[in-house]
Each structure stands twice: as C-alpha cells, then as structure tokens.
Design a protein around this nucleic acid. Structure first.
Lengths: 240, 240
DNA sequence: CGTATTCTTGATTGGCATCAATCCAGGTGG
DNA sequence: CCACCTGGATTGATGCCAATCAAGAATACG
C-alpha cells in the first residue's frame, strides 16, 4: 500500500516537479535541505489511500505527482468529496487528533510526507514556513467557502459549470495545460463533489454539450467552447 | 454606522469579555499591551455591516460581544450564510484582496479591529500570534468542511438537527450557557445557512417538535429534549 | 471474447421549492 | 385604547427538479 522510496545523498527536491509548489517554493537552499532530509517519499496506487478518515493526524503531505481526492463518508454510505488533489497541493494540517477525511489516489500518486512533530519543529525554526502554511490554509478555506456557496445555492447545471471552470483553473495552475480539461475521476466522484447523483451529472454533461457549451471527445476530456456563457451560468469570475 | 469608542490609558483588553478568546488568550502581558494599543474598537447596530463583500480586505476583527453572520450574495439575489458569529470569533483573514463575504450584525455587536498591516507586523514580532492564527484558520476550515458535508449529503431534517447541535456547542463555548439554545437569527437566515427555504425550516422545526425531539418555548429559543435521537439524525458526534 | 464497470438515457417518484393565505407580536398614530 | 400596519413564522396546495429505479450502450480488462 504505502511504500517508501530510497533516499540518496542528492536532494530529491532538486528534481521534484513540486519544487515550486506553494509549500516548497518559500524555502531557500538551507531550508529545502532540511525539508528534504525530513521527508518520506510516499507512493500509492490507484484507489489506495494516503491517509484515512478517523486515523490519527500524524503527518502532513505535499503532492508530488498524480491526482487524488479528499472524501468523507457517512455511516449509511453517503459520501462527500471535499476536494480534488493536484500536484503541489499541501494537505493534512487538521485541528483535531483524528482525521475527518480520507485522501485517496485517482491514479498512481506520489507525495512527500512529514510527521507533524518534524513539521512543527521546522515551523519553529523557519517562521516563513509557518507563514506560508498559514497562507495556504487561507487559500484552502476560500476555496471551501466557494464550495459551500455552490452546494447551498446552485442547481445541477450551475454546479457543473462551476466545476469545469474550477478544475480548468486548478489544472492550469498545477500543470500549465489549459487546452482540454482532463478529468481522471469518475462521474460518481464528480457527483459526490457537487452533491448530486451520477445520473444528474451525466445528464447535465449531455445537456451542456448539446447546448454547444463544451465538447466531450471522451468522457474524461472536456473542451470549453463557450467560456462566457459557462461563466455566466456558474457566476464564475476568475480574477486573473 | 461604524463608530470608534474612546481609548483610555487602561487596557480595554483587561475588562474585555473576549480576553480569553482563541486570538487574545495566547498573548502575554506585553503582547496584549501591543494588541490593545493597535486595536480600534468598533460598534455596529442590528443589520449593519462590519465589512462588506467586494470591499478591500484591509482589516481583521475579533468579536467582543453580540452576534453576527458571514454571508455571500449572488447576483440574482440568492444568499449563502457561511457562518454565524459568536463573541471571541476571529474573522477577516482572507487570501484575496477583496472580501468574498460580508459580516453583518444580528443585534448590536462590538469588535476589535486591526489593520492587516499592523497585524502582519505583530505576527512578525510575536510568532506565537501567527501560530495561533494558523490554528484558528485550521479550526474554521474543519467547521467549513462540516458544512460542506451537511450541504452536500443531508436532507432538511438532518440539516436542522445538525444545525441545532452545532449552535448549541458554539453557544456553550462562547458563553457557557447550555440549557436553552438562543437563536437570534431569523428562519430565513437559518434557511440560507442550510441551503433550504424558510418554509422548509419552519416545517422541519414543527416536525421535530411534534416528534418530541425539541421544545420551542418561542421561535428563537430551543431546548433539546432527545439529544441521542437528534445526534443520530444529524450523525453528530461531539468530541468532548 | 466474455465479463465487469462506467456512462448514458428513459420512466417514475418524491422531497423540497414555490405560491399563497393566515397567524401573531410589536410598533405607530389617531 | 384600539385600529392599523409591518415583518416574521407557520401552514396548506401545487409544481418542478433532481433522486430513484431500470435498462441499454460503451469501454476497459482479464
């Protein structure tokens, strides 16, 4: 399930594609040396978990490659997906001793892992690290409030429009690609993210495709054709 | 609208009922002296705003007394309430230059206000302050994720059950009172918090009252009669 | 090539929204 | 003091969007 990759004398960080992630980019040469030394490199396969709901919150993670999701399950099987994870995302800092979500890989995924203890010490000696983590938290909160707004106020069509624009922005920020939106998750995942059913997601994709707002070369790839309209529907204003 | 109260040589903090709030309790004598000196005391009346959506995020606030709410409006008049505010709540730290929510008073409300600039400097010289603010943010995020879960997964009855238990816990933490839950907001506010309509809130109150789960001496006061059942419905587990 | 899984589409149902009327408390002015 | 007004809360009647139930189409996989 979880495997550690061997460490070498060289800094693994130097060749890491997440070296410029929100977390790591703040650290200078010396800082990155310490971060690098304390990090475990974790690798999980499709459907496997980085950590699980109810498990002790002993670690924090920075996603190196691949994608994943954060989910919460209810006792009767309902599921809410809190976020989809992109390379560079920093996760795991929670206020309670037990995790309220699981982190699951959508395909093969790698991450750096630090114990809370080590991370606390690092933050003590590198205040710019705590500052950065605070700002990451701020950003995550803002995104989560967007999600609250979408779940509380919007209908299925508006939800999906918002979802597509949101994912496009995230993908662009993480990988630079903006042409077609790649959706490695299932319709069921999208449904559980937006608080609707699989059927509604599928129907709504069909509908906005028929309306000419998107092209759907295959179920997991979306090209936005009428951005303006989509933005109006979603009430989505990217602040570039 | 917004008025400043006169400053005296004495520390206003000493007599402040929020002196033990998450933000202030971390500061020692020296620290509280600086916090005190830099704070503007703000007072707003019922229905007035501490700050508004789209306005520059120039300040942070700590609620001293009274209650309020954080709301986001959509262009066509829909509204989502993000949180209800209790004394001791710290708000305003946002990642974007413009606020994504408004903070509105439910009755007369007072707060301490600091400019972001001052707060940034304070955090620089008092690292325990930034640490504390990071932890507050963590806690707020966890609460917001609970809200996502509720909005995405739960029906009207479950939502209201969750709401009541949540408010009871918040009230107890802020004021100590646990007997009856005081709800200074309208049914419409509750509706916009839970993503349902006024009528549904009203009907659901009536329903769970008829079921004997709560007593409703008047519309703004709730006494929980069958906590177990309510917790089961809400899938709410307080982690005392 | 068969089996499983996901996606899609259709038919029906149901929970909540919508529309509307009434109730009730508090405030105002004659 | 009382008639009137107002805003919030409640309750009833009806309609609609999305959930549910069901089945077929497409795709992946052993």
């Amino acid at each position: 399930m979880v495997s550690r990759m061997p460490k070498s004398k060289d800094l693994l960080c130097d060749s890491c594609s997440a070296r410029n992630s929100r977390l790591c980019s703040v650290m200078d040469k010396d800082g990155i040396l310490e971060l690098d030394a304390l990090a475990d490199r974790i690798s999980v396969g499709e459907g496997e978990y980085l950590f699980r709901e109810e498990a002790p919150t002993a670690y924090v993670f920075n996603i190196k490659s691949g994608m994943g999701l954060l989910e919460r399950l209810s006792s009767d099987g309902r599921r809410q997906i809190m976020a989809f994870l992109y390379p560079g995302d920093f996760i795991g800092l929670m206020p309670d001793p037990l995790s309220s979500v699981s982190a699951k890989a959508l395909g093969s995924m790698t991450a750096c892992r630090w114990s809370m203890k080590n991370m606390d010490q690092l933050m003590d000696s590198h205040h710019e690290l705590e500052h950065r983590i605070r700002r990451i938290g701020s950003r995550v909160l803002a995104t989560t409030m967007d999600q609250v707004f979408v779940l509380g106020c919007k209908n299925a069509r508006e939800k999906l429009a918002f979802f597509l624009l949101h994912m496009e922005k995230r993908q662009k920020a993480a990988t630079g690609e903006a042409e077609t939106i790649h959706l490695p998750m299932t319709r069921g995942d999208i449904a559980d993210y937006l608080g609707v059913t699989v059927e509604t997601v599928s129907r709504t994709f069909s509908r906005i495709k028929k309306e000419g707002l998107i092209a759907l070369p295959d179920p997991n790839e979306v090209v936005i054709l009428k951005r303006e309209t989509l933005e109006d529907i979603a009430e989505y204003y990217s602040l570039d």
